[in-house]
Design a protein around this nucleic acid. Structure first.
Lengths: 116, 116
DNA sequence: CCTATATTACACCAATCGGTTAATTAACGG
DNA sequence: CCGTTAATTAACCGATTGGTGTAATATAGG
């Protein structure tokens, strides 16, 4: 079994699952409601599986109301994923800055030192 | 082939690859430098493969300096990944707030307003 | 040219992933 | 009790993943 962060990212690495999360960000929804937009492309068990991935990554939690399973967004893992990224934000922003500078210098023929 | 966002998240869904990115956030490094911390656990070709995943997700780019391939962090996909998450930040923060409130109320049975 | 170093390519393997169909469970409502 | 609706389980399949070992390639330098 993988570490939580890996599971979170793995769960996010699928457009269907991201769309499900997007939908859930608007509020609770049960399985068939979540499945509906995808039923042209895949069957219900496929959705069940996706939900299981999301659930075991802790990104959603399922309740039960009669025969329905109302699903709910679970923010914590998302926060941790963003936290991991933010940790390196300055580094990759520097890189983006250098890229921007470089692209600029290509226009002007300017010099751009970069030693280390 | 998958969409860029999925590729980014998939690339992040592995602790080795995240560690490589973390290292690169401190500056350029060539393949063997990046591999060194992992050589107890896996071989060099495994690292090459991880780098290829990162590269084809656009997260790093490889240069060439003699027989070395200096790797460099590439911020753009990370920014896009964070952007995707931020899009739903308010939704999952609301959820975290409700969770916090709930946990609080379990202790105090107190009321706690928090509306947008 | 020869050799050492750095890195990649190739062929293979087991495990996981994303999907299917068919059967099953669970709960409601007449 | 029966039929319907909601959702899951199970068995299966092909493709991808993450690793291996071995061979090949590229470059520097004597």
């Amino acid at each position: 079994m993988r570490d939580p962060l890996s599971r979170t990212f793995a769960a996010l690495a699928d457009p269907t699952r991201r769309a499900i999360l997007a939908k859930l960000s608007e509020g609770e929804a049960n399985v068939s409601e979540l499945a509906e937009p995808f039923l042209d492309d895949m069957t219900l068990p496929a959705i069940t599986k996706h939900l299981k991935v999301l659930e075991s990554a802790g990104l959603i939690s399922k309740g039960r109301k009669a025969q329905w399973r109302p699903c709910q967004l679970n923010g914590e893992p998302l926060r941790e994923a963003v936290d991991w990224m933010e940790q390196y934000r300055s580094a990759w922003e520097d890189q983006l800055d250098r890229l921007g500078a470089y692209l600029k210098s290509k226009h002007k023929g300017a010099r751009h030192g970069r030693e280390k």
